[in-house]
């Protein structure tokens, strides 16, 4: 493609836009519960929006709207036609469209959470959609699950093991889960939660805050020559005023000028 002309209308540019955080994991492990917890914990300090990927209709989006943890308008639902993993990994067009629509309507934002539909242990987010990803397991699936591995468990930026309150009931040994997860994750962090008992999931919220701050520090410049593959680390320069520059080019497709409601 023509390196001669500035092609920032087409190339996703991480500069000056919100961090996109994917939350994936098996069915029912607590992804929506964790998303709600993050909205509760971070809603005051960060500018947020959420995209849900529902299996059926708009169940998760409706739950979040009812929970009153975030302005309902800032929650968009994407439908995935039987294939939740396709929508976050192989064909991310609908999710990107939803994320960018939210950023255009409510931007500048600090954090956009994309909750995947419940899927299997191999479902991970494309780097084209999520800048960072959390994989959520729960203890009721059995303490063997971390040992089974799979890309979600091994490569996610954060592994959350939820529903610790159920451990005694299902006979899950948390130390086994912790040891097995550490063995396959090469030092990447693991956090245990019970969103039921602790509705703001403080430890996870703290991790997310750190990631968002690091992201903002690296990318607060709206990059002036946004063609080519602008990698985070290559452009970690000191920024001047983050707010002012972020506003103008909050979307990777600034020339797109779409003007409508979310999908």
């Amino acid at each position: 493609m023509g390196a001669s002309h500035e092609d920032h209308h087409h190339t996703p540019d991480p500069h000056g836009r919100a961090l996109r955080l994917g939350i994936g994991g098996p069915v029912g492990s607590g992804k929506t519960a964790l998303t709600a917890a993050l909205c509760r914990a971070l809603g005051q300090s960060l500018r947020l929006a959420v995209v849900t990927n529902d299996i059926y209709t708009t169940e998760d989006a409706d739950f979040l709207r009812r929970a009153g943890v975030l302005d309902p308008e800032r929650i968009a639902a994407v439908q995935t036609g039987c294939c939740p993993h396709t929508a976050i990994r192989d064909d991310i067009a609908a999710n990107l469209d939803a994320v960018e629509t939210l950023e255009e309507r409510f931007g500048p934002l600090d954090l956009v959470i994309v909750e995947s539909g419940g899927d299997n242990l191999t479902a991970t987010f494309s780097r084209g959609l999520a800048d960072r990803q959390i994989f959520v397991l729960d203890v009721s699936g059995g303490d063997k699950v971390p040992r089974k591995g799979g890309p979600g468990v091994t490569t996610a930026d954060l592994l959350v093991i939820n529903k610790t309150d159920l451990a005694p009931m299902v006979g899950a040994d948390l130390t086994v889960m912790s040891r097995d997860a550490a063995a396959v994750r090469e030092g990447r962090p693991v956090l245990f939660t019970s969103v039921r008992q602790e509705p703001e999931a403080h430890a996870v919220a703290e991790w997310v805050t750190g990631v968002v701050e690091a992201w903002a520090h690296e990318h607060r410049h709206a990059h002036p020559h946004a063609h080519a593959h602008a990698h985070a680390h290559a452009h970690a320069h000191d920024a001047d005023s983050p707010e002012s520059s972020a506003h103008d080019t909050g979307s990777p497709e600034p020339g797109h000028g779409r003007d409508r409601t979310p999908v």
Partner: peptide, 29 residues
């Protein structure tokens, strides 16, 4: 919706002023 998504994808795969023009002419997709 499908047209908008296809166009966003096509503009990255086959960059062209014509596709830019289409996106501009029909912003809703």
């Amino acid at each position: 919706v499908q047209g908008r998504l296809l166009l966003r994808t096509a503009r990255r795969i086959w960059p062209s002023p014509v596709l830019d023009g289409l996106a501009e002419a029909v912003p809703e997709g």
